[in-house]
Amino acid sequence: MTTNHAITSRIQQATEVDVDLCYQCGKCTAGCVLADDMEFPSSYLIRLLQTNKEENYSKVLKSNTIWLCLNCENCIGRCPKEVDIPRLMDYLRTESIKRKCVSPKAKPILSFHKSFLNSIRYTGKLNEINLIAEFKLRTMRLWQDVKLVPSMLIKGKLKFLPETVKNRKNIIRIFNRTIKNTK
């Protein structure tokens, strides 16, 4: 019987992460603060990848697991084989966007990332008001956190005028050369 390694090889080529090193000890899942909230936890995700079955890979890319991962790095800190799960998660998120199969449950999380990047794309620095405004429009959560605004104003925590880097062209060029589209 020949074994198909198409998926795990592709992952290893792109990330240098060898998922076959995992022997399912489960320490990553045990230490993951959001394991309970994920469709399946990290050790299960690794097992799905190890099968090298397209249907399982697709299950991974469609899951909320890859978006809930906080990249807190606890899993790799405890992994006896140093399987770099956070790095793997970054790759899987990118693949999930490319294949347009982001979990509907994870849409607000991706909306936040996109709003964040759009806020820095033209100014080089994050403006929190722009970020939140775009996030609200993307998710239609218009009333979220509105109660916070008065006290944030009193505490001087909101900046209305966006700060910009002087060399804005440089930043725009960096975006155009890497991500291009953050719609």
């Binding site: 990249n71 970054d90 790759y91 998120r93 990118t94 966007i97 991706l110 936040f112 990332h113 996109k114 964040f116 990047l117 820095i120 080089g124 620095k125 994050l126 880097v165 002087k166 060399n167 440089n170 930043i171 960096i174 975006f175 050369r177 890497t178 991500i179 953050t182």
Partner: peptide, 24 residues
């Protein structure tokens, strides 16, 4: 003339961007 490091948003969606911003 410092810029944003890209934080979680950049490395979650684009590796090159997440490296380019801190490198600048």
């Amino acid at each position: 003339d410092w810029n944003c490091c890209g934080a979680t948003a950049a490395h979650s969606v684009n590796k090159d961007l997440s490296l380019a911003l801190p490198t600048r």
